[in-house]
């Protein structure tokens, strides 16, 4: 479904992503882990069209999508839940969802908002509250709900558990499992590497912009070398 071939992304002089090749197949849950500054967010942003790769090819459903405007990608079924959630704090929960439904046909939009809203009971309860007043967990659910508005084929999630209390972290991991069981394809970047790899079909480890390990999720999670691969270098 998604394939990156030798993708390199630069910010000015900085090479944030260095010839990375990964793929995500239909119906898979794939985890992308690695330390801060490894280029995980850059990878997701490049796929979602916020950044344009310097070299390499990104293809989605068989089509080359390098440098395609995010709005177009959303319409093709690729949605990103960005790092730090980026919900619209000055809009209500309902308005956040409405805005995320900008790609849905006008007559179906109302229905879609209700449909997605019904998946998240906590949001339903705060329907007309400004999103700025939501707790971290609620805000994260809203961010995911927003991405589901366009009924994406592929969902990219960037650090969905960052800054959440442990019980909420559990809820988010459950949500990921649920999404997969509904047949959605998911690529998730997660700081909680062990847990993400355990629930994932496959995993990739990124460090300093390069791919340093890949394999089945459970294999990587149990690998004693993971910590070393993560932090690089020996003593």
């Amino acid at each position: 479904m998604l394939e990156l071939a030798d993708v390199t992304t630069r910010y000015g002089a900085v090479t944030a992503l260095d010839a990375v090749s990964i793929h995500v197949d239909e119906g898979e849950l794939v985890a992308l882990v690695g330390p801060n500054g490894a280029g995980k967010t850059t990878l997701l942003n490049t796929v979602a069209g916020l950044l344009t790769p310097a070299t390499g090819t990104i293809s989605f459903s068989g089509e080359r999508i390098n440098g395609t405007e995010p709005a177009t990608l959303v319409r093709r079924g690729l949605a990103l839940v960005p790092e730090h959630r980026r919900i619209f704090k000055d809009l209500t929960v309902e308005e956040n969802l409405k805005l995320a439904g900008v790609t849905v046909a006008r007559r179906l939009r109302r229905e879609r908002v209700d449909e997605v809203g019904s998946l998240f009971a906590v949001l339903r309860a705060k329907w007309n509250t400004n999103a700025g007043f939501l707790s971290g967990g609620e805000a994260q659910q809203l961010a995911v709900a927003r991405a589901l508005m366009c009924n994406p084929k592929l969902l990219l999630l960037d650090e969905p558990t960052l800054g959440l209390a442990p019980t909420l972290v559990d809820a988010i991991f459950e949500l990921l499992v649920t999404l997969r069981s509904q047949g959605r394809t998911v690529l998730v970047v997660e700081q909680n590497a062990h847990r993400a790899l355990e629930i994932a079909d496959r995993g990739y480890v990124l460090r300093s912009g390069r791919l340093v390990a890949e394999g089945l999720g459970s294999d990587l999670a149990g690998d004693p070398q993971l910590f070393e691969a993560f932090l690089g270098g020996g003593l």
Partner: peptide, 10 residues
């Protein structure tokens, strides 16, 4: 420390 970095091995 490993746990803080990689998450708990739940």
């Amino acid at each position: 420390v490993a746990e803080a970095y990689l998450g708990s091995q739940a």
